[in-house]
Design a protein around this nucleic acid. Structure first.
Lengths: 197, 197
DNA sequence: CCGTAAAGCTAAGGCACTTAACCAAGGCTG
DNA sequence: CAGCCTTGGTTAAGTGCCTTAGCTTTACGG
């Protein structure tokens, strides 16, 4: 009876906080409702359902991540920019273990903010790659490679996939260094391997 | 009343087939039971529950993947071995979209077969990296990098994360070529970037 | 001051997992 | 060959989650 005064913003933001605490998979409408001091069905006044909430959460997290990546790369170029962005990426994933998985969801084409966030994230990567002289098809390939490497590492780390005692920070640093090397000789790399085959 | 003659093997294998058809997330005990012509609770005579089934499925898929990776790399060395293994990896993930995600689960220490499968997979990667002269800490870093890149790419591809029309095969080929380049100058790569920073 | 849209609520149904308790099939043993 | 008892099946029942329907009440605008 007493109105809590919710809206979609508040609901999604609280979902993000909750997800970071309990994990993306464990984010449940029931827990969210109780956290907000409201009965579960009341949430449907603000989000269409569990799936839509995940989509909105994805938009939020993607926007945040894009901003942090952009900020990290600002004022830097080449390997320095690459490393700064990579560090920002992993940092975000570790600070927000519940939001990060949401960023992997493909943007909802009907949600302009979501699409814009995705575009910004890709744009940040493109900007860094321009510092390596990569454009067009090469830039597309390199973007996919960079996203793959960063996401893969962060995902494996989060899943506890790195069992050995070797420091994970050092491995990440080395991975980024390897990307730097690869991007320096990018267009020729494929040709080179093809030639040797 | 008529015995169907199930056992854990049959249940897990059928779960794998079903997962490949409907997706890992959609793999449900209800669907599996109906597929096997049995009432749902009957499954509990063969697996401890849904989570245990996922674990067994992970063991199965990891073993299969390890075998295919090992086979691909056999008789090859250097960049050729790397590319063959990488192709086998992505191939498996695409042929078995339901099993592949299960391989990311960390092996159950109490299941010897699962542990052995994981060891074999890592061993296959190690063997390829030995061809680059990488051992010890360098090999650990390189293994993590390779796993990250391959898993990341495959995961993004499966999630539909590659929107642009640029051919995905070509991007993958380029990624692997980049790894080849990076591994060639692996130990020095980190130092190089550090020096330039 | 009143009407109404929006924000809450309760009730109820569906689907998934799990446990409990019971029953039949069939191999092993006496 | 009979009967026990393990094993693989069954139905029933409970929990948790998501969702929809329909009702109530708040609070704002005219």
């Amino acid at each position: 009876m007493p109105r809590v005064g919710l809206n979609q913003q508040i609901v999604v933001r609280e979902a993000a906080r909750l997800a970071d605490e309990v994990g993306f998979q464990q984010l449940t409408l029931a827990a969210l409702a109780s956290r907000l001091g409201v009965a579960l069905p009341s949430l449907y006044k603000h989000v269409r359902g569990a799936d839509a909430l995940a989509q909105k959460l994805s938009a939020l997290a993607t926007a945040e991540l894009a901003t942090e990546m952009t900020t990290a790369a600002a004022g830097r170029a080449g390997g320095e920019a690459l490393r700064a962005m990579a560090d920002a990426y992993r940092d975000y994933a570790r600070r927000h273990p519940g939001r990060y998985p949401a960023t992997q969801r493909v943007p909802d084409p009907t949600d302009p903010e979501h699409v814009e966030a995705g575009t910004r994230a890709v744009g940040a990567v493109y900007a860094v790659l321009r510092g390596y002289g990569l454009t067009d098809d090469d830039a597309v390939d390199a973007t996919r490679a960079l996203r793959s490497a960063l996401h893969g590492f962060v995902a494996l780390e989060a899943a506890g996939g790195f069992g050995l005692p070797r420091e994970v920070d050092r491995s990440y640093h080395q991975l980024v260094a390897g990307l730097d090397i690869a991007f320096r000789s990018w267009p020729s790399a494929g040709a080179g391997l093809a030639r040797s085959a």
